[in-house]
């Protein structure tokens, strides 16, 4: 694996290797000195054509914990906003010997385009492209779910997958790269997925996806899912006739206090509530739900750094044949400096 563009490219073995590596990285994050020398001398460029402080700082923290040099390239205010093409930007980064490009782009497929072109030789990591995919988000969600699933089973997460787990993904699936990446990865890891959304916010063609579709959130919650993943409702959708009003959306598809209470009363003991952030509190998720013990929202953020460390590490420390590098234990020593 040279790039990480989509979770459809990941085999079960690839995915588990990344998650297991992320567990090791997480252990580093609990040390006093949270830094490894693994990528010393390597350059990671965060190329962001779309604002995303959360994802950018997560990748930046991950690269820095691995001792890589990090360059942040935000398209706003740069030559890109003066009409420079993706090709020229890529060739500029190539000339500066970037080893990895973490790209966030408003256009679906831009990372894949970069990876398949001869414009640049660096490893390309998709940090969210249009309404296509956001693979590291899906990996950190899977990491979070796997820890939860293993804890319930009383085992260690290492080497395991999500077989037997049922996950509901709720909200604007049509425009969600998070939903797509999660669906493919959750299926690869053996989980059972139900999408819950207004019919207007599901893509034509969803019937060929490996999941169930339900328009009724209450019905899905009744069935006792192991995890409920709420998707962010983008502001620009709110006035585009996808639904009559935000209040109606919230009543039918929001995780509100009443639904939280119903879940608690029904004894959905272990169901976790997830959200990729940033949240619209009171719209797709209520404050009580977001702040409840069921919420994994902060754990997701924390796990994001570990997962991104694992991805950077596996892509950049692999040998020249493109095989992902195994983690030799000695590398996980603390940085002596």
């Amino acid at each position: 694996m040279k790039h990480l563009l989509s979770t459809t490219d990941l085999s079960r073995g690839d995915a588990i290797l990344i998650l297991d590596t992320a567990e090791e990285m997480a252990a580093v994050g609990e040390r006093e000195v949270k830094k490894l020398p693994a990528l010393r001398g390597r350059t990671v460029v965060n190329l962001f054509f779309e604002d995303s402080t959360r994802t950018r700082i997560s990748f930046e923290a991950a690269a820095k914990r691995l001792s890589a040099d990090v360059i942040n390239f935000a398209a706003k205010g740069s030559s890109v906003s003066k009409g420079e093409s993706l090709k020229d930007t890529a060739q500029t980064l190539e000339a500066m010997s970037a080893d990895a490009v973490v790209i966030r782009h408003w256009a679906s497929g831009a990372p894949a385009r970069l990876a398949s072109s001869d414009w640049i030789d660096a490893a390309v990591i998709n940090a969210g492209d249009g309404t296509h995919e956001h693979p590291t988000q899906a990996l950190l969600d899977a990491f979070t779910l796997r820890r939860h699933w293993a804890a319930l089973a009383g085992t260690s997460p290492g080497g395991s997958d999500l077989r037997g787990m049922s996950v509901a993904i709720v909200g604007d699936v049509l425009h969600s790269r998070v939903a797509r990446s999660n669906l493919w990865l959750l299926k690869t890891l053996g989980a059972d997925v139900t999408l819950v959304a207004p019919p207007t916010l599901l893509p034509v063609g969803v019937d060929s996806w490996p999941c169930r579709v339900n328009y009724n959130l209450d019905e899905v919650l009744q069935s006792g899912p192991d995890a409920v993943m709420m998707l962010r409702l983008q502001g620009e959708r709110m006035n585009a006739a996808f639904f009559p009003s935000t209040r109606e959306y919230s009543r039918r598809w929001g995780f509100d206090d009443a639904r939280l209470a119903t879940l608690d009363a029904a004894g959905g003991r272990s169901t976790v509530i997830m959200h990729p952030g940033p949240m619209n509190r009171g719209l797709e998720i209520s404050s009580a739900a977001a702040d409840s013990p069921r919420s994994t929202i902060l754990a997701q953020v924390r796990n994001g750094v570990s997962v991104r460390m694992a991805v950077l590490y596996l892509l950049l420390s692999g040998d020249s044949s493109g095989e992902p590098g195994r983690i030799p234990t000695p590398i996980l020593q603390e940085n002596p400096a």
Binding site: T8, G130, R177, R180, P203, V204, G205
Partner: peptide, 13 residues
């Protein structure tokens, strides 16, 4: 084209 492929690729159909 709007259909199975656009659904996966996240391109407007």
């Amino acid at each position: 084209n709007e259909g199975a492929v656009s659904a996966v690729l996240g391109l407007t159909g």
